[in-house]
Design a protein around this nucleic acid. Structure first.
Lengths: 240, 240
DNA sequence: ATAACTTAGTGTTGTTTTTACACTTTAATC
DNA sequence: GATTAAAGTGTAAAAACAACACTAAGTTAT
């Protein structure tokens, strides 16, 4: 199977660690003759001839993390003629045997997961979680893509219950509140927030509590995609 | 300037005529030897080498309608390997001198305007407004693209005041209500709806009334993009 | 000129949702 | 057994929502 040389997908992999929203970035190091630099990129790849875009995004995510069945959504496409014209990017493409003047369409996807779902040593690639508000200058046009992904995420999380994708399967209400506070950069009143989520039938309380915490252990919940599918009415006006 | 042969944009041009939501479609007629068919397509075109996607979408819209400064938004990208493999589509591409096995990425945009902004005879192309709920089988994968555009439109119009883009500059509150009812396929109580829009500071009442209508003439309003920009808080929880 | 027609425009009441706000509980740790 | 840390809980006032019916102001038909 052959790679298409002008269509690629880039995945913005968001992770939440209980405290901050992070993005999974990959080292890009080039050292060749007098040229030498290191920086970070999102993960992406060309699609195969005959591969649908969604499949390519799944594959890219899998190749980096070993995970399948992760929330993944196409959010925007980037194809500006000058998107790959920074000096280091051209060197990198040349080193990689690619034509730096070939215009490349990159279809942006974002993925949501809990940071601890990823084993960073997977396939020995040099990969790291970086808090989204501490991301420096990235390779290619990846700062632009990241900003755009964040915007889409914020927009979407208000109206659909995707925040749970950033949490472990079993989670506490405080964790849910934290996810929404971090992503929307706001604070909610604890009691009011809990009253609101109490109305969501698809948040299922489990017969289980937190363990090993140095305070009153919290009730654990899980998110039921099934129940949600049947009660899509409160999709509108979700949080906020 | 040369056209890129694998990147295209397709524009879903929505129009409202006071009664229904329509989409602007273009005749595709091929008659050559024993092959002969007529159907309809969205409007689209390849982008020029060196042309950004947004510019290409503006251009495609302009070439069909002669209009500039129209609300236009990228909503999804289509690149399925089988998207152009229907028999008629292959014949059409061949007739057009294009390689039907070339994989083409199509970036979808939707435009919003009032149907009477468009002069259908523009450039003599065979163009027609079709109510979205009466659209038959379109060329290529354009039914898919249209459905996807409708979904994006419905999603967006709930949360951001873009309904006004489908109305003339000066409009009545009943027209606003109708737009939202048609697009969201629902009905609102007139008094409650008006109470809600009365809270929107960016709806500016004019010193002007409807003329020549066979009933009490309605107050005219306009939408102020400026005021809206300054009061984005009620972006959330807009209509519904 | 008047009647008929058509859509514009308006207020109240009961119900639900939102907001603001502080103390007790339960576990682990020292 | 005291300390620490987060979990969990209720109420009252304000705002928003939902349901509902008549009058006003033009045009058209007679």
């Amino acid at each position: 199977m052959e790679l298409n040389n002008y269509i690629s997908v880039d995945c913005v992999i968001f992770g939440f660690d209980g405290e901050r929203l992070k993005v999974l970035l990959v080292d890009r190091t080039l050292s060749e003759g007098s040229t030498s630099f290191t920086d970070l990129t999102l993960t992406g790849n060309h699609v195969y001839e005959n591969e649908p875009l969604d499949a390519a995004a799944d594959r890219v995510l899998f190749e980096l993390t070993g995970l399948t069945n992760i929330y993944l959504e196409q959010f925007k496409t980037f194809a500006h003629p000058d998107r790959l014209t920074k000096e280091n990017d051209i060197k990198w493409l040349q080193h990689d045997g690619r034509d730096p003047f070939q215009r490349i369409v990159s279809v942006g996807y974002f993925a949501l997961l809990a940071t601890d779902q990823v084993t960073l040593e997977w396939k020995g690639r040099n990969v790291q979680w970086v808090p989204v508000d501490e991301v420096g200058e990235l390779a290619f046009d990846h700062n632009l893509i990241l900003e755009s992904a964040l915007l889409s995420l914020r927009n979407k999380i208000i109206h659909e219950p995707i925040g749970f994708e950033l949490l472990p399967q079993k989670f506490t209400l405080s964790q849910v509140q934290k996810v929404y506070e971090i992503i929307l950069d706001t604070e909610f009143d604890k009691r009011n927030f809990r009253k609101k989520v109490a109305r969501m039938k698809y948040l299922i309380p489990l017969d289980e509590k937190q363990k090993g915490v140095a305070h009153k252990p919290a009730q654990l919940y899980m998110f039921s995609r099934d129940v949600y599918g049947n009660t899509k009415k409160d999709l509108l006006n979700f949080i906020v």
